[in-house]
Simulated scan of single mutants.
Amino acid sequence: MTNIYYMDEDSLGHLDAKKSINSFLWKLLYKRVEKRLKNSIINIQNMRKIVFNKKLLLHCKIEGTLPYVFLRRDPSWYYAEDGEEYFIPFSICFTDGNVKYDIVLVDGKIDLRNDSKMKGDLSKKLSHTPILLIKVLKDIEKNFEILLKYMDEEDKKV
């Protein structure tokens, strides 16, 4: 499962997916990540270059620490069997099979989410948490840069 689910169309920032954990420590750690993200290669323009590539790729494999990449090009609402409805935003998912990180564009903002807890269990749709560590952000940035170069090469082939 590569989709990331939100309760609504609002950015979560330092909150967990259910907006139930509003930790002061999480807020402090997230502020550091958010500050670094302002000058990062991860921005809306580069996300659009990747997601709206000329080959219309929705998934690919790159030579990075998170080699499997899945793209969500069109946000939508998902009506689950349990009667709940979830928002699936515009996103880029990086995974190695064990960890799963999503770069999400929602409400005009970029959310960095750790969705590793779900691991295929559909009952854990709202189990993602914010990326709180600079070390993890740096890893995502490296993989994002590799993906951006990969998409540029693929676009040149068209």
Rank of each mutant, 00 (worst) to 15 (best):
residue 4 I to P: 00
residue 5 Y to E: 07
residue 6 Y to P: 04
residue 9 E to F: 11
residue 13 G to E: 10
residue 15 L to W: 08
residue 17 A to I: 09
residue 19 K to Y: 09
residue 20 S to Q: 07
residue 22 N to A: 12
residue 23 S to E: 06
residue 24 F to W: 10
residue 25 L to M: 13
residue 26 W to H: 08
residue 28 L to W: 04
residue 30 Y to P: 00
residue 32 R to M: 08
residue 38 K to Y: 08
residue 43 N to Y: 02
residue 45 Q to M: 08
residue 48 R to S: 13
residue 51 V to S: 02
residue 56 L to F: 13
residue 66 L to N: 04
residue 66 L to C: 05
residue 67 P to H: 09
residue 74 D to M: 06
residue 75 P to I: 12
residue 75 P to D: 10
residue 76 S to D: 05
residue 81 E to Q: 10
residue 87 F to E: 02
residue 89 P to D: 05
residue 93 C to F: 12
residue 96 D to L: 07
residue 98 N to D: 03
residue 99 V to D: 02
residue 99 V to N: 05
residue 101 Y to A: 00
residue 103 I to M: 02
residue 104 V to Y: 08
residue 105 L to C: 06
residue 111 D to G: 02
residue 114 N to W: 03
residue 114 N to M: 00
residue 115 D to G: 06
residue 116 S to I: 06
residue 116 S to M: 08
residue 116 S to H: 07
residue 118 M to D: 00
residue 118 M to G: 00
residue 119 K to G: 00
residue 121 D to M: 08
residue 125 K to P: 03
residue 126 L to S: 09
residue 128 H to Y: 12
residue 130 P to C: 11
residue 131 I to Y: 11
residue 135 K to R: 15
residue 139 D to M: 14
residue 140 I to V: 15
residue 141 E to H: 11
residue 143 N to I: 11
residue 145 E to H: 02
residue 147 L to A: 00
residue 148 L to M: 04
residue 151 M to Y: 11
residue 155 D to I: 09
residue 157 K to D: 03
residue 158 V to D: 01
